[in-house]
Design a protein around this nucleic acid. Structure first.
Lengths: 128, 128
DNA sequence: CTTTACATTCCAGTTAGTGGAGACTTTATA
DNA sequence: TATAAAGTCTCCACTAACTGGAATGTAAAG
């Protein structure tokens, strides 16, 4: 199938699918006459896999690792679990950061009148 | 003072301070003989302000807005409060996303043996 | 006078794509 | 069959907010 069909089936944009070909993540065969990329169902399965992994916040490089584990039928689940635990840890870090940011900002907002006068505890804090 | 002194006082890197000059956020005077950037205490205060706002997750463009409000002694606190509330809302969105990611991933991890056998519910989910 | 430290500009790379131009192929319509 | 429209190709530029490095220039110290 052509790229737009593969894109539709994997719910990715054509541009993204082409990008994944460029970075050698999912390299389809080529139609010799037209030069068009020619995707198999297997290629689409890989695209789907990557799309889902990306939505799970795995980076492109992590997707590459997962994809190679996915394709290796003799792999152990240990490595996959390790990657996933690392991802959870990094998400936890971001959660912590954002939680504390949220707290600080909402504290400041609560102190700010938000009226037409110039006095502003938010700016005061930022300039300390 | 020269750029490295300004960088030290504002706890930013020299590269970053130079970058803020390039994008016309904090444009110092120049020493005519050497061409070196010459920072005043006021410039350092601005750098500090930006550094803090960046740590609060405000984008460069938002920093620009905040900085102009900061410098306008007749500003109303309304606008600052509006920007800050919008920032809180966007942080809340990210928190939500990351929370649900975390839940899904930790569910998968709990289902995965993490041993030397190939069976892996994480990969199974990603390939669905 | 030379070494060293600090400064300058400019170019490239980072992440993960997205947008657009210009050219070519395929498909649909008149 | 001619033409128009749709799909695809490659290549380049842009996004955010810096960071790293090269080549070059200036200032301070010994």
């Amino acid at each position: 199938m052509n790229i737009s069909q593969a894109a539709k089936l994997s719910r990715l944009s054509v541009k993204t699918v082409r990008y994944y070909a460029d970075i050698k993540m999912v390299e389809p065969a080529r139609n010799i006459r037209s030069g068009y990329r020619s995707y198999t169902n297997d290629d689409v399965a890989k695209l789907n896999f990557i799309g889902k992994a990306r939505r799970f916040n795995f980076s492109i490089e992590e997707c590459r690792e997962l994809l190679s584990l996915y394709q290796n039928k003799n792999r152990s689940s240990k490595e996959v679990k390790r990657l996933t635990l690392a991802k959870i840890a990094s998400i936890d870090e971001k959660l912590k950061e954002f939680h504390s940011l949220r707290n600080e900002l909402s504290h400041l907002v609560n102190c700010c009148n938000g009226d037409d006068r110039p006095s502003c505890p938010i700016l005061d804090e930022l300039s300390k």
